[in-house]
Amino acid sequence: MRRIISGPAFALLAAFGLGAMAIWVSGGNPITSFGAMFAGAFGSGPTVAETLVKSVPLIITGLAVALGLRAGLFNIGVEGQLLVGGLCAAYVGYAVKLPAVVHLPLCIVCGMIGGAAWGLLPGFLRAKRGVHEVITTIMMNYIAFYLTHYLVTNPLKDATTMAPQTPEALSSAWLPAFGGLHAGILLALICLAGYAFVMGRGVFGYEVKVVGKAPDAARAAGISVTGTLVRAMLISGALAGLAGAVEVLGVHHKFYDQFSPGYGFDSIAVAFLGGGSALGTGLSALLFGALRNGAVGMQLATDTPREIVTIIQAIIIVMAGTKFVKNSSGSGGGADDPL
């Protein structure tokens, strides 16, 4: 019973409760503010579409983090992997001329390869040398920030504008759009289904779970722990790269500096709140997308600043993170009965 209360529901309840107090203390009305936030996220067809569009990168990056967590890896480098993947997709999008049937998939695959490449080094260092991936992925993030910044301000810069961005991708590389949405939502759904299937039924998912929860048992069962870790990190990075590619090809159609509002970091909260499952990750990504989108509506309709949403997100992270720490320290043979 206690476990259910301390789960995601509790994190959400606490977050919105404390968020309401913050609104109230700063002179606002929590009920009208939250009402406006809801209307801003789900109030009409276009706002729902916008919420979904904002959820797409969160779903895919959330899965990237969730996969890492299942393997016992804390991939904080999703943001960097997303940037590299996005830039690869943008480059192939404008620099290569191909028919759409080939061009679009090629851009997506290149984005995934870029993300995976950015995840490879931390994965390899963790598996072979025991270097903690939190440190290496943070460092890889910085390299990605400044590398992409340099590239879009210098060699890959669109010469026709002052802005730090690549030229626009050819329309053959755009994700098809319809009614305020783009085809990235389909890719996100495919990722969710694929993740659920692989983790539930795949040998790879099985090995990932055992390596994450009982590495010693994995070794004794003949599972290659190093191989599984490297593969998990590669796929996590590929997903992050996919999210970057989808955002570039579906929304912006080019890579401009700092195009990501921190999807890679929100994805950590999404994964924690989602508890590592596909359904949970999908739902919490939707929630975060709605918060992000609803914040704009709330700020327009009331005096409540949109930063309240940041507070709510932060509390969710703290609450969900606490749950994770408790669970992870309880694994690995900690099941000794008092008897």
């Binding site: 009982a214 010693d216 048992a217 004794a220």
Partner: peptide
Amino acid sequence: RFALAPDFSILDNSILG
């Protein structure tokens, strides 16, 4: 610790290895 993954079900553990 080398024999079983305690958090997992009997089902998952009975095929481990």
